[in-house]
Write a protein that binds this DNA or RNA. Structure first.
Length: 271
DNA sequence: AGCATATGACGAA
DNA sequence: TCGTCCTATGCTC
């Protein structure tokens, strides 16, 4: 689940359960080296930027990136024995949170945090974020828009599911050169990303189809194109292909290819 | 039991 | 562009 909405949801939930408390911190797996520094220390809160999560202790900040496999599990206190792969266990008064499989989980100093922030593009979930830099970057490259949307230094928080769904909803073919996106389309994209991510935080999952009152979206109804065989809108076949090292899903009826300016790769593939 | 798969990102070449 | 790292799940045999 780890796209931007997951980390922002986690920041809220971790803050709700653990903020203000002195935590018992452990690493059943043994691969988190901040246990000594943090055990018994008070957590101020948890925050998120893009796909990065920060545990803000009074004395230090833990930087967590879930990568593809990282997960948090919540338990009531007292929690069950931790699985051996548990990298980090945070035990608060009422709840325990177990982290497994993260790409990153380390104490970060000021310089590291600053470098990270400098590297990340604007996060649509940040109410203070402005899209000007993202627009400038997007407008300045001929890379495929589908690849640019995964680039966390342009916009942070969008992952493989959101990129497919956002491009579908905007009717943009993923191989469209980024610089051909108009300012008006970009503004739509930014607003859509913000609203979908916010909805993801609220619903605790990615949902891009219209809400049906009284019904919860299921795996079968939540998305238009991602991992589907048929387009939820027109019923046509979904094309599945690699783009930016990940699997892209698109309906080429609802997302027509840009005219003449095919990418070189697309041309090669078609011949 | 074993294998394929996954919503991510990095470094080497 | 490829290999690599990290773990859990759900399939197939």
């Amino acid at each position: 689940m780890p796209e931007g909405h997951t980390l922002h949801r986690l920041a809220l939930d971790l803050s709700r359960d653990l903020a203000g408390a002195k935590l018992s911190v452990s690493s059943p797996q043994g691969r988190f080296d901040g246990v000594k520094t943090l055990n018994g220390k008070k957590l101020i809160d948890a925050t998120a930027v893009g796909k990065h999560l920060f545990l803000n202790f009074k004395s230090a900040v833990v930087h967590i990136h879930l990568g593809l496999f990282g997960r948090f599990k919540r338990h009531a206190n007292p929690p069950p024995d931790a699985r051996p792969a548990t990298r980090l266990r945070l035990l608060g008064p009422e709840h325990a949170w177990d982290l497994s499989g993260p790409t990153r989980c380390e104490i970060a100093d000021k310089a590291q945090l600053e470098a990270l922030r400098a590297r990340l593009g604007a996060d649509p979930l940040d109410p203070k974020a402005t899209p000007e830099t993202a627009w400038a970057k997007m407008h300045a490259t001929s890379r495929a828009i589908g690849a640019v949307l995964l680039d966390q230094s342009v916009i942070s928080g969008i992952g493989n599911v959101y990129r497919a769904e956002i491009l579908f909803l905007l009717g943009i073919h993923p191989e469209t050169p980024s610089r051909e996106i108009t300012r008006a389309k970009f503004d739509d994209l930014w607003a859509l990303a913000a609203s979908l991510l916010a909805r993801g935080v609220k619903e605790r999952r990615i949902v891009t189809t219209p809400a049906v009152p009284g019904k919860r979206a299921t795996k079968a109804t939540a998305l238009y194109v991602y991992k589907r065989d048929r387009c939820r809108n027109c019923g046509g076949p979904i094309r599945k292909f690699k783009l930016g090292a990940r699997t892209m899903f698109a309906c080429e009826t609802c997302q027509p290819k840009p005219k003449e300016t095919k990418t070189r790769r697309a041309r090669q593939r078609d011949e």
